[in-house]
Amino acid sequence: MIKGYAVLDFVGKSVMDSYQGVTQFIQLVVDSLAEGFRPPLRIRETVQQLYFIAVQSLPIILFCVCFAAMVTILESSFHMKLVIQNDSMVPGFAAMLILRELGAVVTALLVTSRVGAGIAAEVGTMKITEQIDALRMLGIRPIHYIVVPRLIASVIGLAILTIIANLVCLFVAFLVSEIYLGFTSGLFITGLVRFIHFQDLVFSIIKGACFGFVIPLVSCHFGFLCASGAEGVGLATTRSVVASSVIIIILDFVLSFVFSFFS
């Protein structure tokens, strides 16, 4: 009996907590959008953030995406041979997978773990060292000062990163299929032309921008809620990485589902 109550209590509390968290998050999203259109536009800060988010993440993203592309093409070849006893379609399929899913998602997950975690740690540290209170005392709106530049930079940055990642990924896939799997470049390009349309690239960029919208907001949300002490910062960082990753995967599914009706 008592155990039943305890379970009920636990469930009720978690539901209430997550409800509160979600409403606070929505409030943050609304506020950031409102603040985003308020002058002054802090261009220098935004460019600095763009450098941190996009330029500094580029090497690591390219590195990972190259390996991911190689694996994708090897695995596609394996599956194609298994099902239709013929792997002539492999380049086209691999390219399609890369463009539709891999490029955007892998980029976004890597950015989450690097930039998202970084933002959460930074904002959390600002919160526990009372820098955010100090901002408010000096009459600065923290959302305008902290969230907006990161948000704008991240949306632009991820859109660009996604394009670059996709192109590099395709190029690596091309190299692997030619050198290791023995396709001629003509075959590869025929496959590309047959399976890939320009809209796939557009969808991919839209995906990247959406992920770029989510990452800084989630990180700032958990940063603002950060509890004091070393433990608080670590926890805020962890939570923001997990929440962003899950949201990215769910969002990816929703977008893929919606886009599947356009192709």
Binding site: I60, F63, C64, A117, A121, V233
Partner: peptide
């Protein structure tokens, strides 16, 4: 506190890189 935040970021990034390469 800053160091803990940094350690967390580094962990996530290096693990992902390691995993992709191992994959």
């Amino acid at each position: 506190a800053k160091g803990v935040g940094l350690a967390v970021v580094n962990t996530a990034v290096s693990t992902m890189v390691g995993i992709v390469v191992a994959d």
